[in-house]
Amino acid sequence: MTTTTATSPVLEASGVTMRFGGLTAVRSVDLTVNSGEIVGLIGPNGAGKTTFFNCLTGLYVPTEGKVSYKGTVLPPKPHLVTSAGIARTFQNIRLFANMTVLENVLVGRHTRTKEGLWSALLRGPGFRKAEAASRERAMELLEFIGLAHKADHLSRNLPYGEQRKLEIARAMASEPGLLLLDEPTAGMNPQETRATEDLVFAIRDRGIAVLVIEHDMRFIFNLSDRVACLVQGEKLVEGTSEVVQGDERVIAAYLGTPFEGAPGAEELAEVEAAEAAEATGTPETAEAPEATETPEAAETPEAAESDAAAEGTTSKEGNAQ
């Protein structure tokens, strides 16, 4: 929760809108990330968080709005965005499955090395030096995330948690000024999640600003200097963890809006119990934990947090691809 004094903006997104036909997945979102900051991005499933990331990194061309990095407007081309200094990871892990761990990180170095086909064919001293330097840098990153001993393994053979870490190392290899993490702890157990927390702090301490999407509320509120909440494509609130945690609209967005004017907990419980009864025949759905825990959740913010975390765990199953 430390806030660093430096306040020069690294990322400025203004009025970013993304429409898919009739669906507006992201609606006029403004977001700023300052250097040395960790910013969290939360929101229920389908809120448009990943779509927003894709707009930032040029994978989607935003329908409206612009994204600038350290003052210069970014063209919507992924490779140009990366060479400008924004790197990312993917929600559904996208490693180069049949390359080794080391090679994956080396690919991440692509924008920071220059050797073309000719120097590869001629193998001059410059090429060798650059290649050795790349390897050294990549090994250093593997050391940093704790995967150096598996440098020669095929990335497809790594356990889930390590694959996520490797994605982070691969992204860091491009020496970014801003790192976008899309659900970095999805599929991790509590210990791994805690380790990832430390990892993100360590990344921040290296001078890299971080924008992180996460459903694990404890994780996000521990980590972030600021949190923005996206609901149905719109930014609902933005502020410190305390502010966002206490915001009724956020809780409502996660837990569903009660009937107009009458938020009675018993009523809600009744309705959802009925729903649960209806759904008994079917296997456990994402609503199930919500239904049982809602009444308590409405009472204390801590409960809301754990509840949301529970939702997070269910959601990632839906998202794994």
């Binding site: 990194t57 994978l59 992924p78 490779h79 990366t82 060479s83 790197a87 990312r88 993917f90 996208r94 490693l95 180069f96 499955a97 049949n98 390359m99 090679e103 080396l106 690919v107 991440g108 170095r109 692509h110 924008t111 090395t113 050797e115 073309g116 086909l117 120097s119 590869a120 090429f127 650059a130 290649e131 790349s134 691969r170 992204a171 491009s174």
Partner: peptide, 21 residues
């Protein structure tokens, strides 16, 4: 080499490869 690795990366996952610059 750098270029060969980028070929393989594209073979493996073109979207991720472009996102790596």
């Amino acid at each position: 080499s750098r270029i060969g690795r980028s070929w393989i990366a594209i073979r493996e996952d073109e979207t991720a490869a472009t996102a790596m610059g």
